[in-house]
Write a protein that binds this DNA or RNA. Sequence first.
DNA 1: TTGTAAGCGTTATCAT
DNA 2: ATGATAACGCTTACAA
Lengths: 338, 338
Amino acid sequence: MTASISDVALRANVSISTVSRTINRPTLVNAQTRERVEAAISELGYRPNAFARGLMLRKSEMIGLVLPDMHGEFYSEIIRGANMRAHELGYSLVLSSAHDPLDTRALVDGLRQRRFMDGIAIMVAEITDHLQQALSDLRLPIVLIDSDVQGTPHDSVIIDQRAGATAMMRHLIDDCHAKRIFFVGGWETNMDSIARLKAYQEVLTDSGMPIRDEDVHHLDYDYDTAYAFAIQHLPNWKGASHCVFAANDEMASGFVDAAHALQLQVPDDIAVVGFDDTRIARMTRPQLTTVRVPLADMGATAIEMLCQRLNTPTLPKRHIALRPELVTRQSCGCQTSQ
Amino acid sequence: MTASISDVALRANVSISTVSRTINRPTLVNAQTRERVEAAISELGYRPNAFARGLMLRKSEMIGLVLPDMHGEFYSEIIRGANMRAHELGYSLVLSSAHDPLDTRALVDGLRQRRFMDGIAIMVAEITDHLQQALSDLRLPIVLIDSDVQGTPHDSVIIDQRAGATAMMRHLIDDCHAKRIFFVGGWETNMDSIARLKAYQEVLTDSGMPIRDEDVHHLDYDYDTAYAFAIQHLPNWKGASHCVFAANDEMASGFVDAAHALQLQVPDDIAVVGFDDTRIARMTRPQLTTVRVPLADMGATAIEMLCQRLNTPTLPKRHIALRPELVTRQSCGCQTSQ
DNA sequence: TTGTAAGCGTTATCAT
DNA sequence: ATGATAACGCTTACAA
């Protein structure tokens, strides 16, 4: 049987309060008795029982990280960042993800079963009233990740997609002297893709360039789809100072590979840029100019905000937007053309 | 304040035992009182306190997943599989990873701080005596992931690297009629790479083909390194029925891209195959023939074994080896050459 | 500086 | 079928 606090007390010839003090407020106990107690503790291999401790202290130092899905680098980077920061702050991370990204119901049910969490960092594909309700029912500190909900009663971290896409467009026009830019987005309903498209249109307008509907297309974020699409369209799109702005690196990579298959040179016959700065960006030849999205940072920030609120519940609500960063490599042509 | 069991009892005009029964063994309580209690429960929004529950039941239904690192698809797939199975079995996953993959000390300290876990699934880069000791000190059910430790007193899941590499070699020789196969491994000390090299040598020998030292090289698993290396060596390596067997997909992809840069056709001038079947394999042109490593499955299996032991502590120790699966695509040449 | 004792919210045993 | 009551292992006034 595992030793309890009274076993230690017995062995050290003190009361259990002294043992407790030795552990939690060592300065309050006489050096000699403290030594005795510490000896007893290590001899018995005693560890305080976490349940009993939690029962008194009403906290577990565990944080729930709830994600809509777990496939791919996107989520794993968030997890990595969150885990790192949680560890630094002395918290453990309890992972939980829905099977179906859109199944908020299942997600909520999972939350209701919440066991020990002091707070929850949560990312959802779609935030319904039902979910909002469920979240407040939890009566737990909550941080929303990457959900651009206006007037949410919770803290939140998002990524400033608009700023990232704008930086890319400015680079393309100002530095690469692009004359015509094709936009290849992801699913039409995808918030990120929409934000990026908006920036595309704005910068075009601001620069006095025309917005042509036929230059905007929506695919599904997939390499193969983009490759097939590119094989069809690149022959018409090619041209000096022409550029494809893909809404993620996978599609950009598909375009580059398709260009090769068509005997087109990137960036000379057609430039291609991506978004996200995943590993793929550096594994494409030429390497992709892209926008680094601070996913790990977003995870870490979410945890940090949550812990701060745990420590100071009265803190005013905060909504933090993280800025992506332009990463220029060879696929945009500005290096070769200058 | 959050409602407790006695609040419910008060409101439903019953004793706390009846409330507890209503929740845990509903059949033992009269239908009418049960209704009253259930009404009180939902009116108060009552949820049993997990700490108190854990204190009595001596279990949390939480499982620790400990990893040496969290970068990359490798770990994220393990996490994904583990999370899925844990969820299915009604457990939550508590994540924890060392900062430095080799810092077992930090890892152990983290474990000592274990709070609520019923058991732990752990993967370590290197398993020292010190760590072994720490693991037994935990006195917790443990499953080792991907650590080929002989005579470990714990359950374990590993991947049968040997079988995977052998399948690939047989395919290359029997189906693709390769005449000469170059092996490009990862770090020389990497267990996986070593196992794959061993299989390479064995199959060569079994097939009456010579083992040439100059055909075996060790790089660092990285795309860029492989690309640079390939640019140098491919001109000498090329040849009909010549093939590069890279120990992971990243390096294989580097070889393919380098071949293109050198105006070499894959697989006709030189075939290239990889290992792991990561996304990269399908994002390389031609797509990579490779070996699918069941990472998610490994994570899931680890959790499953752990839960089984939790339920039945007397179970004999088990050591499960998961078989990788050959995935033939276009880069090996067997499709075009037949 | 140390000990006593109350209480945290459950479940489980034993009466009734 | 239901209710008292004793654990579970800990923290923390309060007393000494």
